[in-house]
Structures are given as structure tokens and as C-alpha cells.
Amino acid sequence: MNDTTSIDSAGIQKLMSVLPHRYPFLLIDKVIKIRGDEFGIGIKNVSANEPQFMGHFPGNPIMPGVLMIEGMAQTGGVLALLTQGGGAGKLVFFMTIDKVKFRKPVIPGDVVEYHMTKFAKKRNIWFYRGEAFVEGKLVAEAELSAMLADA
């Protein structure tokens, strides 16, 4: 039995206790609606003062797609790590990205929801389908896998 049966969300302090990422590369602000490692929604509040917008693109800031994929990966990583004792002594390694599609630009002021659904698990590897939404509209999607290893 995993220890996430009573965890239904994780705020920034919990994320920072589970993930090794820190600003400016911590790309989610919280995870809500956690159902073990099966499903969760990561939230990213996109702000105009984030460093990527200095160069992507001046006068027309657009969230880089690769950072949205990393936000998906971090959300999936939180779900997997929480089911393994909160990540103590574990590292998560991003392994694959497949079937990526970017559908609409994400700009400062948007709130991105990363909906992550596990579709397979083999030993210490988790496979997730990710969909990113802004105001209910699909902006990006991908299939990701990550491996948990001892630190």
C-alpha cells in the first residue's frame, strides 16, 4: 500500500521536499487532484517576470514548448515519487518524450494545468499521457516516461 491514500494535493513546500528542482527550473507551483500515481493535475502560473521571456520573445512573450513538457514531467515525477515514500533517497530521471503536439501559444498571465494520466508502469519506470490546458483549451500534449532510481 502506498502512502498517498490521504494526499489529494501538494503545495509548493511539498513539491520542494519531493523534487530536486528549484527556481528558475521548478516549473510547477502545485499539484492538485492527486490519485496515487494514477492521475494528477500540475498547476503552473505563468508570470511575465520569468527569465525565459527575456529572449522568447522580446515584445511577444511565449512559453517555450520544451518548458511545458518539463512541467508535465515534473508533475508525473511528483506522482511517482509520492507513491515511493515521498522521494526520500530517490531520483527521477526523464527518459522518453513521444507524440508531442503544441496546439496554442501560452503567454504570461495564463494558468497551465498539466493533466497527467499513467498508462503503464514497468518495474521502476512510469509512463504518462500528458495534456496541458489553459482555460479548458488543450494547448499541448505528449507521452512521457521516467525512471526512479536510488540517489
Rank of each mutant, 00 (worst) to 15 (best):
M1G: 14
N2K: 10
T4I: 09
D8H: 13
D8F: 10
D8P: 00
A10W: 02
I12L: 15
I12K: 06
Q13R: 12
V18S: 01
L19E: 13
H21K: 07
Y23V: 07
Y23H: 11
P24H: 04
L27N: 11
I28C: 06
I28A: 07
D29N: 05
K30M: 11
V31Y: 09
V31Q: 10
K33D: 15
I34Q: 02
D37C: 02
G40N: 10
G40L: 07
I41L: 08
G42R: 09
K44Q: 10
V46S: 12
N49T: 12
N49Q: 12
E50W: 04
P51Y: 12
P51K: 08
Q52Y: 15
Q52S: 04
F53A: 03
F53P: 03
M54N: 13
G55R: 03
F57H: 09
G59Q: 06
M63F: 15
M63K: 09
P64N: 13
P64R: 11
V66F: 06
G71V: 08
A73I: 12
Q74L: 09
V78S: 09
L82A: 06
T83G: 10
G87A: 06
K90Y: 14
K90I: 01
L91V: 08
F93M: 14
F94Y: 15
F94C: 05
M95F: 01
M95Y: 05
V100D: 00
K101Y: 01
R103L: 15
V106C: 03
I107V: 15
P108W: 03
P108C: 03
V111I: 15
E113M: 14
E113S: 13
Y114R: 01
Y114P: 00
Y114F: 15
T117F: 01
R123M: 13
F127D: 04
E131Q: 14
F133V: 09
V134P: 08
V134Q: 13
E135S: 14
G136D: 11
K137R: 14
K137G: 02
V139E: 06
E141L: 13
L144Q: 10
A146Y: 03
A151R: 11
